[in-house]
């Protein structure tokens, strides 16, 4: 059984937000929900300052804190290492939203339109609303699942497919011959906040 992970090459990434948008469109996430997100930071002082884009998503941790704090067992790991939520078991306590050291979980109580109130929903928003309610659910915790449905159709996760910089590589960490294993090994792959000890499976390659 594979153990899925992702590599994000910060040298290739130029911060275009296509990953975050592709995720939004593929998963029909409502306002304020970014299963994939691009953070911005600035380091150093002029003229040696650096603006850095940092794409983030659920790290699909090997030892997920979100799973530990879940009182009902709604959060579980699949055999291939993806951290998922069983919306029927989730009671919406949001401990996992607080417990995730990476801010990757979102609980949506009320579905909201992207447009100002007072108008009937567009056919597209009717669709996204239905999609969200059926797949992710309201009043429960939601998160990235490495696009489990797309992968079932033989496609890559939406954020990987959309990346014009080819900065994202999805693959099997247990396969020593996979591209991501090779990249992590040879290009100084690192994880975010290793000190929290959750063993993230999203790796980053340094900006330069």
């Amino acid at each position: 059984m594979a153990r899925y992970g992702m590599v994000i090459d910060l040298n290739r990434c130029y911060g275009c937000y296509a990953c975050a948008m592709a995720c939004k469109v593929a998963n029909r996430t409502p306002p304020g929900v970014f299963w994939a997100r691009v953070l911005r930071g600035e380091m150093g002082t002029f003229p040696n300052s650096v603006r850095q884009a940092l794409p983030v998503l659920c790290n699909q941790c090997e030892e997920p804190d979100c799973m530990k704090v879940c009182p009902t067992g709604a959060t579980y790991k699949t055999d291939d290492g993806i951290v998922r939520v069983d919306k029927d078991k989730c009671i919406g306590c949001a401990y996992c939203v607080m417990g995730c050291p990476y801010g990757a979980r979102y609980k949506v109580d009320d579905w909201n339109s992207y447009f100002p109130e007072g108008l009937p929903l567009s056919p597209y928003e009717e669709h996204t609303k239905e999609f969200w309610e059926q797949k992710s659910g309201l009043g429960v915790s939601t998160k990235c699942d490495f696009c489990i449905d797309r992968r079932a159709e033989g496609k890559e996760p939406a954020c990987v497919q959309a990346c014009s910089a080819k900065a994202r590589v999805f693959g099997d960490l247990d396969d020593p011959d996979s591209e991501i294993s090779y990249l992590i090994k040879t290009k100084r792959g690192f994880v975010l906040r290793p000190e929290v000890g959750t063993e993230p499976k999203v790796y980053y390659l340094p900006p330069r």
Partner: peptide, 18 residues
């Protein structure tokens, strides 16, 4: 095979109630 953030967002242009 690639499309940018604006192209990806175009369903909201097609169906914008405004």
């Amino acid at each position: 095979g690639k499309i940018c953030v604006k192209g990806l967002a175009s369903p909201q242009l097609l169906y914008d109630p405004y």
